[in-house]
Design a protein around this nucleic acid. Structure first.
Length: 482
RNA sequence: GGCGGCAUAGCCAAGUGGUAAGGCAAGGGUCUGCAAAACCUUCACCCCCAGUUCAAAUCUGGGUGCCGCCUCCA
């Protein structure tokens, strides 16, 4: 069974056929690093992480590119507020993003281009578009001429006439603001800026690139003129991806991407979680309460194209559910985390590793069900239901060898979805540690009060062995790490 | 206003023509000094109306409710 993917461009599920047999060029739009990442970004990252992991598991040679937008108006505005340079701000949040990704067990992309590294390519692309008559200069700005693009609106299912006239207040105000545009729907490839601000020299003077241009340029530079899959959050469909597509295809006269895939959002109380609404919880904040696996399970239990409503109850449900998988995986009796299909590095799955399970009837059936679910537009919810099915069989089995083999398989297949199934139940936080020590010191005080020095000394000596020094002071007993 | 999507058990959520995956919660049971955990087990005719079909949660039309995009956004 071939892999089926839902293509936003056609609105249908299609058979996935790579441009070049056995290879996949995959590009997903990454974050703009101007603030902390929230659960919505975690979903984007996890969904694309799983897609690229699964494509590799399927035996395809994947080049996964995820970009970083490290220069744009939001970054500049925020940096002005904070009175630091835009590049400092971007670097700060990029580091934070990386830390979040690492904590979430999101595998690093093969290539992670940053917009600021591709200025020359962007300028070149804008120049080429002007030369080809697809874009025009106006007072130091360069605009893409939408009227010269027959397909415009196809991806976002928009009608140019509606966009021009419709009820778009923004279009009107933009129109009044920017008389230089020939058409209100034309979008900027290059925007002039005062030399006192962040910017670059260009054939049209000092300025900055339009947002959409970076992805077009980076895709071209890193992957080529046509790629297999272009993805991102569904809010990027229009205008971001529509405009990328218009630019690239006008210049190259060939498709930018064969398949366009978009993930849905995380809502809070049925309202979109977003930075502008201020209703988000950061990833770091979330990871204080829930493990990376829990967050991942919460996200992957819903199909990537459906919205998820965040609630503490749902997170708690995911946490409970995860414990069943973790418990079953313990029978594998190995410290390795669920990455048996990763022989050494993230970048190459050992597809043949799956072969070792083929001889077992239960695992062979499980494999077929798992693959059928994932082949069907990455239906992680169904794939996970089969993980639970396998977990049940593991718990029910009385045969040690069989149980161990199944548990290893459970870890490996869970690893394809990016789960570690690490047993975190014994990881005690600082607060609990303090309470436990406080209790021990209290018991010791009670023993001393009863002149039971045998017990009190036992507690002190054993704590010393455990790396805790107990000290009796004038204010009472206290402790510190030895 | 235009475009797109969604409505499935107490909650979350798969399922795109053949008679409802999975998870959480809840009830029952095993285990247990008590409790917890763990394990076993029970639990739905799919928003409303009409239609197509031998057969519909799944297709068509209408209605109601909710959400997203059209402006920065994953």
């Amino acid at each position: 069974m071939p892999i089926q993917v839902f293509n936003t461009l056609t609105g249908k599920k299609e058979e996935f056929v790579p441009l070049e047999a056995g290879k996949v060029k995959l590009y997903a739009c990454g974050p703009t690093v101007y603030d902390s990442s929230h659960l919505g970004h975690a979903r984007m990252a996890i969904v694309w992480d799983v897609i690229q992991r699964y494509l590799r598991f399927s035996g395809l040679q994947v080049t996964f590119v995820r970009n970083i937008t490290d220069i744009d108006d939001k970054i500049i505005n925020r940096s002005k507020e904070l009175k630091i340079r835009p590049d400092q701000l971007a670097r700060h949040y990029l580091y934070e993003f990386w830390a979040d990704m690492y904590a979430l067990n999101v595998a690093p992309p093969d290539i992670e281009p940053r917009a600021t590294e591709y200025l020359q390519q962007m300028i070149l692309m804008a120049e080429d578009l002007v030369k080809k008559g697809k874009a025009y200069e106006a007072e130091g700005d360069v605009y893409f001429d939408v009227s010269g693009c027959a397909d415009y609106g196809k991806l976002g299912k928009k009608n140019i006439e509606d966009l021009k006239s419709g009820a778009r207040e923004q279009v009107r105000s933009q129109n009044e603001l920017k008389e230089v545009k020939r058409n209100p729907v034309d979008f900027a490839l290059w925007k002039s800026a005062p030399e006192t601000e962040t910017g670059w020299q260009s054939p049209w003077g000092f300025g900055r690139p339009g947002w959409h241009l970076e992805c077009s340029s980076m895709i071209k530079s890193v992957l080529g003129e046509t790629i297999d899959i272009h993805g991102g959050g569904e809010d990027l469909v229009f205008p971001h991806h529509e405009n990328e597509k218009a630019q690239s295809e006008s210049l190259h006269d060939k498709p930018l991407a064969k398949y366009w895939l978009h993930n849905s959002f995380v809502n809070v109380s049925e309202e979109k979680m977003s930075k502008s609404l201020g209703n988000f919880r950061t990833i770091a904040d979330l990871l204080r309460d829930y493990s990376a696996d829990t967050v991942r399970l919460f996200i992957l239990q819903t199909h990537y194209r459906n919205p998820i409503d965040f609630s503490p109850e749902s997170m708690q449900a995911a946490k409970q559910a995860l414990m069943r998988l973790v418990r079953a995986a313990l029978f594998a009796e190995t410290e390795e985390n669920g990455s048996g299909f990763y022989p050494s590095k993230h970048y190459s799955f050992d597809v043949k590793a799956a072969e070792k399970y083929k001889g077992d009837k239960t695992l062979s059936e499980f494999h077929n069900e798992f693959v059928a679910a994932m082949d069907n537009d990455f239906n992680t919810a169904v794939a996970i239901s089969h993980l639970f099915g396998l977990a049940d069989k593991i718990s029910a089995s009385k045969n040690d060898a069989e149980r161990k083999l199944w548990a290893k398989a459970l870890k490996d297949y869970a690893g394809v979805l990016g789960f570690t199934l690490a047993d975190t139940r014994k990881e005690v936080d600082k607060n609990s540690t303090e309470q436990v020590l406080s209790l021990l010191l209290q018991l010791r005080q009670d023993a001393r009060a009863n002149k039971d020095f045998k017990t009190s000394d036992l507690i002190r000596n054993e704590l010393a062995k455990a790396g805790i020094n107990v000290m009796d002071t004038a204010e009472g007993p206290t402790w510190e790490k030895a």
